[in-house]
């Protein structure tokens, strides 16, 4: 596992330029309060929707501060897994613990969920969207905005605080959605295909951005994606799931430390080899 205080030491020359890289999260003092690491244990998990088995005897363990990538074919129950972990859905069988807490509402209190679509509320400005969690916990609008403001600076969104979501690009909307998830101040981030709706270039930029943002935070994260490369690049470890009902068919350690420039990471020999192993595991699972 990569140390959580390890931030990119030097600013690498970006191959895919991200206009606001210099605002990236290399400042450890900027860490959010309440964002203490949390471990996730999934034991003997099974779930079905009526007759349809979605997850079968799944065992997963994520240590505090680790980023676990979960890949699997479309419709294999990856999103359901996140909803189960986050306490949004009750499993048919098995046990899930987040920081040792097993009850659904206790898990809900420890996890924040970033869905596939940004789900920004069109009637709120960017900063009010980002600051929803503090608002829900009783902060006034001004207090909540004060909490969100430094993150806008840090994540290259300065100047867009008062914009409406409809005025922003897909990449910016996803960044605000991520800010909103961070501002929930919970130890575990559940990321459900966060960039699936973006075009290829924005997606690559956002992966690099997220790698840096995760490096600057001490969060545990479970990243669900159908993109093997994305999972390997962003995670410490990748779990490969079979088609529905989902079982664990392989676990791979990511070849490189996180937060390298993306192109360096994904073109390294180790990365390519691991990616092929993951793809082979996926193909085996389909048979």
């Amino acid at each position: 596992m990569r140390s959580t205080s390890e931030a990119p030491a030097t600013e690498p020359q970006p191959v895919l330029s991200l206009a606001d890289r210099e605002a990236g999260g290399s400042d450890p003092t900027a860490r959010l309060e309440g964002g203490s690491p949390g471990a996730v244990e999934v034991h003997d998990l099974g779930h079905s929707f009526g007759e349809l088995g979605v997850i079968e005897l799944l065992e997963l363990s994520v240590s505090a501060g680790e980023v676990l990538g979960v890949v699997g074919p479309s419709g294999c129950g990856k999103s359901t897994l996140l909803e189960l972990v986050g306490g949004l859905r009750a499993p048919v069988r098995g046990a899930i613990e987040v920081d040792g807490a097993g009850a659904a509402n206790e898990r809900l209190a420890r996890c924040s969920y970033m869905p596939q679509r940004d789900l920004l509320l069109p009637w709120l400005t960017a900063i009010d969207n980002a600051a929803l969690a503090p608002r829900n916990r009783g902060a006034t609008r001004a207090e909540a905005r004060r909490l969100a403001h430094p993150l806008f600076e840090r994540f290259g969104l300065a100047g867009f605080e008062r914009s409406r979501p409809s005025e922003l690009s897909g990449g910016m909307r996803q960044r605000i959605a991520f800010l909103r998830t961070l501002l929930a101040g919970k130890p575990v981030l559940l990321l459900d295909e966060p960039f699936a709706s973006l075009d290829a270039i924005t997606r690559a930029e956002m992966q690099e951005w997220l790698a840096e943002a995760l490096a600057a935070e001490s969060h545990t994260a479970i990243l669900v994606t159908h993109d093997v490369e994305e999972a390997l690049y962003l995670s410490d470890r990748v779990a490969v799931l079979s088609p529905r009902p989902a079982r664990l068919i392989a676990e791979l350690r990511a070849p490189s430390p996180r937060a390298l420039p993306r192109l360096d990471a994904v073109t390294s020999a180790g990365f390519t080899a691991t990616r092929e192993r993951a793809l082979a595991a996926l193909a085996r699972g389909r048979r």
Binding site: L119, L121, L132, A133, N136, K186
Partner: peptide, 24 residues
């Protein structure tokens, strides 16, 4: 329903869900 899930993980009470998501 995804909006409701999202705001629940952001610590919204039932009343806050009604006020911030459902009413608008």
């Amino acid at each position: 329903p995804d909006l409701v899930k999202m705001i629940r993980t952001l610590d919204a009470s039932r009343r806050q869900t009604l006020w911030r998501v459902e009413a608008p």
